[in-house]
Design a protein around this nucleic acid. Structure first.
Lengths: 348, 348
DNA sequence: ATGAAAGCGCTAACAC
DNA sequence: GTGTTAGCGCTTTCAT
């Protein structure tokens, strides 16, 4: 089949097969630039030319080299997403919707994992900026001054997510961790709880939710006179096992707690599991509130009261911000608080 | 600060700031190629030259343009990873370890989501091949003949994962879904179970585990005479809720089942949750086996017997394969069955 | 050990 | 609507 020759002959070549736009243009009997236009802007060429080019592409199995295209056009059609870890379920919805939103416009997502310590952020950032991406989506706000400066200087559109700050680098889609902590405290107060505790991951944002929760709870008188709200801190990323052991620890020193706010749904599930073992009735003896509203939360028994953050919306909005920026469109509200919801279920 | 001028002046330019290797070389008082060498192959230049270049980089905040570098060197240092969805917890370990393995050598991971239907695979593939990645890591084996041919012709190293096939495209790190199904059936048989059932996701690999399980179970006489193994099929990705409703469905028609094999740990957790509601004792009345050994499995109450697949090893191996290939190293065993383990715990 | 020339594959300008 | 001319920013020869 002569149809296959052009690519076949280079098939086992070290890298993708030497087939270029020039070759395709030659086969189609047009100039390279016409072939380029036919592929990237079909409306701008005649039907006849389009047909010839399409036939040549079909014949050869040509796939445009986006690296070369990116260099020439200064648009790599790549967006970098930085998450602490993909292994926590929390950021998945965001990454998924970001990927999908961008894929619809021919953009790809490059994944970076920063870990929960800030140390790796700087190295990661160079790797990212080096790609000259069309945008960078950050989970959380950038604290390192050097990193902020580099990002700023690179001129790349940046979307910080999953948090709020009065001084964003560029654009932002987030919510207030402090408000979550305070709102949950008020929620539990309203439900008549008086001896609250908190189990929190060691990462910075979880700690801020916990701190705000403690402050509000103290103010509402939900502790024993003169005492602090009991806090159990566990390593991030949090697990079910952490939740179990933290509950044991908490009840050892504070047997009278009647509500616990967990910094993740997994932690909450751990608390519920341990409660099952000790035959602690939920919510009668112990109210449990999670964070994340993972897809299992509604189906637990008892169903889990938790804080929902719309990761899908964050991802979609962040993606759209970058797309708009690339298209030169004005972004009406580039710093957005998308809020959260306390989802009331049976566990609290 | 004159130190900032070079990048500052272009900071708000549309794209990353006009600062090139040439500028850096000029500032350092050397030729561009020397600057390039100083950065990519420090051992090949004199200490003095290295020092000058490093100083200039420091001064300007220069970050090399990897798009241009990729075009010139034909090595994009990008690896594409294709997963059905990042939202299932199953592939996270693999993606995480792949990312880390590659990052250590300066490679980045580009994420593609194929969905569980094969329709999107072809479009995704063009987007990937267009980047001329250093490698492609596929979850599951490629079925579409067109896709296989394109991949083959592109000459890109390919690692198929999470499955076995006698006809891999290139390299492979996987395990046998059929063997898992059969082994679990034997395991339950050994534990004295006689009325087994299965709850499976609708995706192809889960179905193959289920089919193999049913075949083995039937052969072992673990069904009522002349009857099939009861199967409940739920949409992928599977959830806890699916597990709950599937158990109800199963027991409605087959009240005597004493063991159920679930195609995911989440499904298994759903079964355990529903069992809690109906006060079905696990494992006494009903044995439950999951799949995935997610991090919560060991800490459930009762702890979950499940099938563990080492996603971390798959990701690390796949990454190493690609790195080896790029370095021209021989790969001793490019098709690898990494197997699986049945983790015996309390639920079965 | 260092430099000069050439070009990777594509697209932005500017003609025609 | 189509083609020509120049690069994009870097790395590869190949020389010195």
């Amino acid at each position: 089949m002569s149809a296959q020759d052009p690519d076949q002959k280079t098939a086992r070549g070290k890298k993708s097969g030497g087939l270029t736009l020039k070759d395709v243009a030659h086969i189609a009997g047009v100039s390279p630039i016409s072939a380029s236009r036919a592929l990237s802007n079909p409306d701008a060429v005649s039907d006849e030319l389009l047909k010839k080019v399409r036939a040549a592409v079909e014949l050869t199995g040509y796939v445009p080299n986006m690296v070369a295209g990116g260099l020439a056009s200064k648009n790599s059609k790549l967006v970098a997403a930085v998450v602490p870890t993909i292994a926590g379920p929390v950021f998945q919805d965001m990454v998924q919707s970001l990927t999908e939103t961008l894929a619809a416009s021919g953009y790809q997502v490059m994944l970076g994992q920063s870990g929960y310590e800030n140390s790796r952020e700087d190295a990661l950032l160079d790797a990212i900026i080096g790609r000259r991406p069309a945008g960078v989506v950050l989970t959380g706000i950038m604290r390192s001054a050097l990193a902020r400066k580099k990002l700023l200087n690179s001129g790349v559109p940046v979307v910080e997510t999953w948090d709020l700050t009065p001084t964003p680098i560029d654009m932002l889609v987030g919510f207030s961790h402090e408000k979550i902590g305070a709102d949950v405290a008020h929620y539990l107060h309203q439900r008549g709880r008086h001896r609250v505790a908190v189990i929190t991951g060691s990462d910075e944002r979880s700690q801020r939710r916990a701190a705000a929760f403690c402050a509000a709870a103290t103010q509402l008188g939900m502790t024993r006179a003169g005492e602090q709200v009991p806090v159990a801190t566990v390593d991030a990323p949090t697990t079910l096992g952490h939740g179990r052991s933290a509950l044991v620890e908490l009840r050892t020193h504070h047997p009278d707690i009647d509500a616990v706010f967990c910094s993740s749904d997994l932690l909450a599930l751990g608390v519920m599991t341990e409660a099952l073992v000790w035959e602690i009735a939920i919510p009668e003896q112990l109210a449990v509130v999670g964070f994340g509203d993972l897809n299992f939360a509604r189906d637990l028994y008892p169903s889990l009261t938790t804080v929902r953050v719309d990761g899908t919306a964050i991802g979609a909005t962040a993606g759209q911000f970058i797309l708009d920026r690339m298209a030169g469109r004005e972004i009406e509200q580039p710093v957005r608080d998308i809020g959260f919801q306390i989802i009331q279920r049976d566990s609290a």
